[in-house]
Design a protein around this nucleic acid. Structure first.
Lengths: 159, 159
DNA sequence: TTAGGGTTTACCATCGTGGGAAGGTCAAGC
DNA sequence: GCTTGACCTTCCCACGATGGTAAACCCTAA
């Protein structure tokens, strides 16, 4: 099977298949005499597995582990469960972060007239220094602010 | 004011200040005779504005627009509101996408014994082709699947 | 004057994906 | 056989926002 067919069958783009091979997520494909990559049904199966894990938001690094467990006949389901739980926790963290942003914005929007006048509490708030919590140095090193921001979308998944 | 001081005051790293200048988000800073960037209180004010907008998850492109409105004395608050609403919509889309992933994983996890045996419904599900919805071609071109995936974290915000 | 810290530019890495160029291969139709 | 179009190959570039590093330069206090 050519890479194009494997791509269609697995729903992983040819570009990504080559990339996954390059970074070692999948073993190098067999080659025809002319250098074309040749895939078996099993290869497609693995690619599809990867695709589905990506759809669930697993990073390539996490998928490396998942594939390892997938191939390990003597795996313990607890290991898989732990991986999945870690990923859920990460998702939940990012969700919470974004919910917080959205809530803040929604509160601001409710106060904005949204008419032809220039006065706007949204810009006003962005302009103002922190009003509620403002211990300048003490809090800067703390987790929340940066954690909120950094957790906001660590694993892009743009096609 | 040096870049270091401006950085501390605005809570934007020096690295990012230079980057924002490079991509044209902020105008080139004045320079001292020796080539050091020099910032005014107003510059810091603008940087802080940017920082706060980033914390709310606005992309640099969106902030370009926000800054334009900020500087436009004859702006209409409706324009600001519209920008904010668009961003909220985008956030909500990504949140929904991640909630869906998390829900799927949580459902899988509930079915996994999580013990020393290798049998695991999580891997099993990743392994299986789509069972519920499987109109192979008809649906592939449609939005949902890819939209779900691509919305999963388009705007990384890693420090 | 010297030491140490701040600053400058320039380049590289991240992560997963797409785009494109330049060239080789294959299969169908003439 | 030859042409054509679709496919494949590798290689490089881009994205977005950020961090890191290195080599060179500047400033200030002791």
């Amino acid at each position: 099977m050519n890479i194009g067919e494997a791509s269609k069958a697995s729903k992983v783009s040819a570009k990504m298949i080559r990339y996954y091979e390059q970074i070692g997520l999948i073993p190098p494909a067999d080659r025809t005499d002319s250098g074309y990559r040749a895939y078996t049904q099993d290869d497609v199966h693995r690619l599809h597995f990867i695709r589905r894990a990506r759809d669930l938001g697993f990073s390539v690094a996490e998928i490396t582990d998942l594939l390892g467990l997938w191939n390990d006949k003597s795996r313990q389901s607890a290991d898989v469960k732990r991986l999945a739980q870690q990923h859920i926790d990460e998702l939940d963290r990012r969700i919470a972060s974004m919910l917080e942003m959205a809530a803040t914005l929604k509160a601001l929007i409710r106060c904005c007239a949204g008419d032809e006048r220039p006065d706007c509490p949204i810009l006003h708030t962005l302009e103002q220094p922190d009003t509620s919590d403002d211990e300048p140095e003490a809090r800067t090193g703390a987790v929340p602010r940066r954690a909120r921001a950094s957790a906001a979308g660590k694993k892009p998944r743009a096609h």
